[in-house]
Nucleic acid binder design. Structure first.
Lengths: 162, 162
DNA sequence: AGTGATTCTGACGTTGACGTCAAAGTCATA
DNA sequence: TATGACTTTGACGTCAACGTCAGAATCACT
């Protein structure tokens, strides 16, 4: 009933590399289908952190986090995969900027320039999200007002509230 | 250049009925396609407030508000049309309860019962929306934290922030 | 070297929410 | 009542985001 399912509850590797998952285990862990992982890769959203010599995809924890991010952008913000590609490219760019910033050889005004660029990218996403949040807030307020009115009817005198 | 476009900037009707729009004008006013209006009707989401003897659909302002509601539930909450159908049916039920409540013949405990039912329906929607809002809030907070950190780099001393 | 589970690459199918088009019908106006 | 704009009902097309399936290849393990 448990014939060593290969990847699931993996035993710690003696060498301290990374724990890489095959596409089946990765899909299960991320809560999406194998097809979805291949599709994301096809669109350039997700590149498995390495592949076996024979061409099998191996996914890292970072890869799984990226899938989670994709799903979040899909369900929370309602972005399509093309828009998500843009967001992810921006976030990758920010990470890259961060690394360049840490680099000893980066000059001080280059640091400034990079940071400003990163902030601008993040800000633009924030605009989008903030707009959505505001709209949702309004929606919710309206809903709560209606509930409130109904509740008043329950509390008030049973008849003819004028 | 203005050969009486029939329905657009309509002249006030002498009799005080309602201003009804043909499907073309209604679609334009609501910002959706004619096909969408027919499709919504096909799914039972939207029934034109009346039709001409020949079978042409006429849309009221209330109809347009409903379309706006549908679009809102689509884009803001990401619901599909089946889920929207449920929400709208619930909201219709609440309105119906409201009317029954106003009715003289409705007894006091019937009023209580109806109100409780209405509140329950609204509350259930509120749960959904609130969950979404919370998630979005978290998303936004994370984003703002990242922006903040980048901003700190801009304000701090140009080098090795440890 | 063999076995069985897993994965590969096409390639076609599906679903939701419409888009588009043809042929016929309706409506207000000339 | 005739004209032209608008609308009707099918019916087929489209697009995104995968689902599904076949046949071959890969991998860990014996």
């Amino acid at each position: 009933m448990n014939p060593t399912p290969r990847t699931a509850t993996a035993d710690r590797p003696p060498g301290g590399h990374e724990e890489l998952l095959g596409i089946g285990a990765a899909a299960a862990a991320a809560g999406v289908s194998e097809r979805a992982l291949r599709y994301y890769q096809q669109l350039g959203l997700l590149v498995p952190s390495c592949t076996t010599p024979g061409g099998l995809r191996r996914y890292s924890a970072e890869n799984l986090a990226r899938v989670a991010r994709i799903r979040e952008l899909q369900t929370l913000l309602g972005l399509n995969l093309d828009e998500i590609a843009i967001v992810l490219r921006n976030e990758d760019r920010v990470a890259q900027i961060r690394r360049a910033y840490q680099d000893e050889r980066t000059s001080t005004d280059e640091r400034l320039r990079l940071t400003r660029e990163g902030v601008a990218l993040l800000e633009s996403l924030r605009e989008t999200v903030e707009a959505k949040r505001a709209a949702l807030e309004g929606f919710l307020a309206d809903l709560e007002a209606r509930i409130e009115r109904a509740r008043d009817l329950l509390a008030g005198p049973g008849n003819s509230p004028q």
